[in-house]
């Protein structure tokens, strides 16, 4: 072999059988051998997790935009209000935080990647990146600018660090142009990033 060289491309992760990957394979194989669940169950669960997206969160927001009493219940107890719509939140508690002309909310998990998966699906790669997690608590406006989101200078930013048992979703401001629209029309205006707080809904 000559001196080490740099290929300038990412390594395939499946080549690295790390400590935790080995442990996951061992535990999964044992549980399947013992008949606790089947490989088919694992496949089905992974498929369901991958298939979930932010449409559930958008449904909650559109409903809150149309019904002021529901909006108040959602802000008071996110878990109970989501269950009212027939969706399950699971063991973690949902906290919904409301954007207003004076306050803009943005969500992060600086310790790992906690995310309201039950409403938004799997977190995007940027949400899990070290850069987003370390910068958004330190210079949120600069981070929002990278997403193309500019806020008026007098708006207060409230960053939510999701470090424990709560999960956070942002209730964005309803765009004025949407007056009189149906729930389905409203849902189409809502973007995933607006529910995390890195974007606003301006059309």
């Amino acid at each position: 072999m000559s001196e080490p060289h740099d290929h300038r491309h990412g390594r395939d992760d499946e080549d690295s059988v790390s400590y935790y990957r080995t442990m996951e394979i061992a535990v999964r194989s044992l549980l399947i051998e013992k008949g606790i669940f089947s490989a088919q169950d694992v496949r089905r669960t992974v498929e369901a997790m991958d298939g979930r997206n932010y449409s559930r969160g958008a449904r909650v927001v559109a409903h809150a935009w149309q019904d002021g009493a529901y909006r108040a219940r959602l802000l008071a107890n996110g878990t109970a209000a989501v269950e009212e719509l027939g969706m399950q939140v699971g063991p973690l508690k949902l906290v919904v935080v409301e954007n207003t002309p004076a306050v803009h909310n943005v969500v992060v998990c600086t310790l790992c990647s906690c995310y309201p998966r039950m409403l938004l699906g799997l977190p995007p790669d940027w949400y899990k990146s070290r850069e987003y997690r370390s910068r958004v608590v330190r210079e949120p406006r600069a981070v929002l600018a990278d997403f193309g989101t500019a806020l008026p200078a007098d708006v207060t930013i409230r960053v939510h660090d999701s470090t424990a048992d709560m999960r956070y979703m942002v209730l964005p401001m309803r765009p004025p142009a949407s007056a009189g629209e149906s729930a389905a029309q409203l849902e189409r205006r809502i973007s995933r990033d607006a529910l995390v707080g890195t974007a606003v809904i301006d059309r």
Binding site: V95, V137, R138, E139, P140, R141, A142, A153, D154, V155, T156, I157, R158, V159, H160, D161, S162, T163, A164, D165, M166
Partner: peptide, 28 residues
């Protein structure tokens, strides 16, 4: 478990954005 609200300037003395900005963190 509490949610504790910190002024951004309390966390980062050299914070350069809006002085009213806050960070809320869940703490046991």
């Amino acid at each position: 478990l509490y949610r504790v609200r910190f002024q951004a300037r309390e966390l980062w003395p050299d914070y350069r954005e809006n002085a009213a900005d806050v960070v809320e963190i869940e703490i046991y």
